[in-house]
């Protein structure tokens, strides 16, 4: 198996601390050492691509170069980081004049990049590299009875769909089944949460997130499980306003998939960032009894 380096991105250090707090222990439990990339810089997400394509590729080239020097492949849990690093990687290796020039610039700044690094999302690693059979072996308490809506969002499955389907992905559903939870048939699984637009355009943001929350409620989910920090953020912060505007109680916990994995692996729930939820988790804990039934 390859060796991996952890690229946190900005969210994991601020509003999505519980993503980092849960994904690192999960990797440890699986037996994969995951050191944080030394002096990584922000990927620029959708912003840099909207302003300056060349600079966006260059700053991501710096990150790729750091991983290459360490001779490791990248693990990027944030959907936007995953997409942006992958996009830049592809662009830098496109052999166009523009890309060759950026590679030279990288070299001149001491960030030489040859193109050997693969960018991974933890979901793809868990389901396709490590495999669900291995995951099942780690489960100490099955999350029996917990109904989850598996929400993939956009940027992990589109447009670089090297491990799942862009419109109807199933990897997260399968992973949740492997840890004993029950995925509901969540038809909104790849609908957009509005991304960075939600914070700026309230009307659109509330409408898009209402669709996602309502569908999860309608299918009887106890929680929505996400693989993206921005999806989690949008789905949490819009709930109160949506309840007020649409007069519909769509209150539902939004969790990172790694939090539930950690719980199933027997890691104490206090160590998985559950206290950072803006939504009460009480009904969920009641359903799970002691944080999951013993096998």
């Amino acid at each position: 198996m390859n060796e991996y380096i952890y690229y946190p991105g900005c969210s994991a250090k601020s509003n999505a601390k519980h993503y980092e707090e849960s994904i690192l222990p999960v990797f440890k439990e699986i037996g994969i050492k995951l050191d944080e990339m030394e002096d990584w810089n922000c990927c620029g997400a959708t912003a840099s691509l909207s302003v300056d394509k060349t600079k966006a590729a260059a700053i991501n080239g710096r990150n790729l170069s750091i991983a290459e020097k360490a001779d490791k492949d990248i693990v990027a849990p944030c959907a936007a980081c995953y997409l942006t690093l992958k996009k830049s990687n592809q662009f830098l290796m496109s052999e166009t004049e523009e890309a060759k020039k950026i590679l030279k610039d990288l070299e001149s700044a001491g960030c030489e990049y040859k193109g050997t690094v693969k960018v991974n999302h933890p979901l793809g690693l868990f389901t396709d590299e490590i495999g669900l059979e291995e995951i099942k072996k780690k489960v100490k308490r099955k999350l029996t009875g917990l109904r989850v809506a598996c929400y993939y969002g956009c940027q992990v499955v589109r447009p670089y769909t090297d491990f799942d389907d862009p419109d109807y992905p199933v990897r997260l559903d399968n992973l949740m089944k492997a840890i004993g939870a029950e995925p509901v048939d969540y038809s909104a699984k790849t609908r957009c949460c509005g991304g960075s637009l939600t914070a700026n355009l309230e009307e659109a943001g509330l409408r898009l997130n209402y669709i996602l929350l309502k569908e999860a409620k309608r299918k009887g989910a106890d929680a929505i499980v996400t693989i993206c920090p921005l999806c989690l953020f949008n789905l949490e912060i819009t709930q109160n306003k949506i309840i007020k505007k649409y007069k519909d109680n769509v209150k539902i916990p939004i969790l990172f998939f790694s939090q539930l994995m950690g719980l199933a692996f027997g890691i104490p729930k206090e160590d998985l960032g559950f206290s950072r939820s803006m939504i009460s988790l009480k009904p969920m804990w009641e359903k799970l009894g002691n944080g999951g039934t013993n096998e």
Partner: peptide, 29 residues
């Protein structure tokens, strides 16, 4: 309340390298 706000102004250590890189991108090597 949930400890998810950071007031710190984040920054990388090797800003010099980043400046050099972006300058090269702008000017051409």
């Amino acid at each position: 309340k949930t400890g998810r706000m950071s007031l710190k102004k984040e920054s990388i250590k090797n800003k010099k390298q980043l400046r050099k890189l972006l300058k090269a991108v702008k000017e051409g090597t």
